[in-house]
Computed example of a mutant assay.
Amino acid sequence: MNDIKFGEILLPGDDDTQGSREKTVRKKFWPAFRKAVRHIPFARDLVAAFYCALDPQTPLRVRGILLAALAYFIMPFDMIPDFFAVIGYTDDVAVLAAAFAMVSGNIRPQHYEAADRALADEPIAADM
């Protein structure tokens, strides 16, 4: 991780990188989210970003940025490891906030509706 500059984390990446990130995010997002939800001040935005990143109608560059941020979020060891309780999530929050600022106009009401359903423990559709 020392070789990666903080600003490079949110690079969208090529098709192979995005595909790999999407696979990882699909598999690990919910377990990581459940573990971190008490430490993330914008859980609804995070879940909406998850749905936006997986929405095939989301522009490729936006999907890439969100997948990069979400992949960073689910990594167990990053700049500040998450096992350091509250402080361990500060870098995740910073990366996610930067990603949201870059792409917020692309997170649509349907993504927030899906997030609201997920946070209310309603059945979640796999595809939007």
Rank of each mutant, 00 (worst) to 15 (best):
W30I: 08
D3F: 14
F73T: 02
R38D: 13
V37T: 13
L67I: 11
F84A: 13
F77P: 00
A43L: 06
D82E: 14
K28F: 02
R44W: 01
V103W: 04
I9N: 04
L66R: 00
A36T: 12
L67R: 01
R34M: 10
N106M: 06
D82M: 12
F100K: 06
A32V: 05
L11W: 03
A126D: 15
W30N: 07
V103E: 02
D127K: 11
P56F: 06
M102I: 08
F83G: 01
E113V: 10
P76E: 14
A32N: 05
A120H: 14
V95N: 09
F6E: 09
L67G: 00
R61E: 15
L11T: 06
V103C: 05
A114T: 05
M102D: 07
R38P: 03
D16R: 14
G13W: 11
I87T: 14
A125C: 06
C52W: 08
R21N: 02
D82H: 12
E122T: 07
Q110M: 09
A94N: 02
Y89T: 07
W30R: 11
P41C: 09
E8T: 05
D127G: 07
R108M: 15
F84R: 11
F50E: 02
D116S: 12
K28E: 03
G88C: 04
V93L: 03
I4Q: 14
D121W: 09
P76T: 09
S104E: 10
A49Q: 08
R117D: 09
A97M: 11
F83W: 15
Q57E: 13
P59F: 05
A43I: 00
G88I: 03
I80H: 05
G64M: 00
V95S: 04
Y89L: 07
T24H: 13
I124F: 15
A85R: 15
A71N: 10
R63M: 04
N2K: 11
T90F: 11
K35D: 09
D82R: 13
I124V: 15
L70V: 02
P76F: 12
T17Y: 06
L96Y: 03
L96H: 03
P76K: 10
T17N: 03
V95T: 06
G19H: 01
F50S: 01
V62W: 04
T90K: 08
L54K: 08
P41V: 09
V95Y: 06
G88L: 04
L46Q: 04
R38M: 09
V86Y: 01
I87R: 13
P109F: 03
A120T: 13
A115G: 06
A118I: 01
L70N: 00
R26A: 09
D116C: 01
M102C: 10
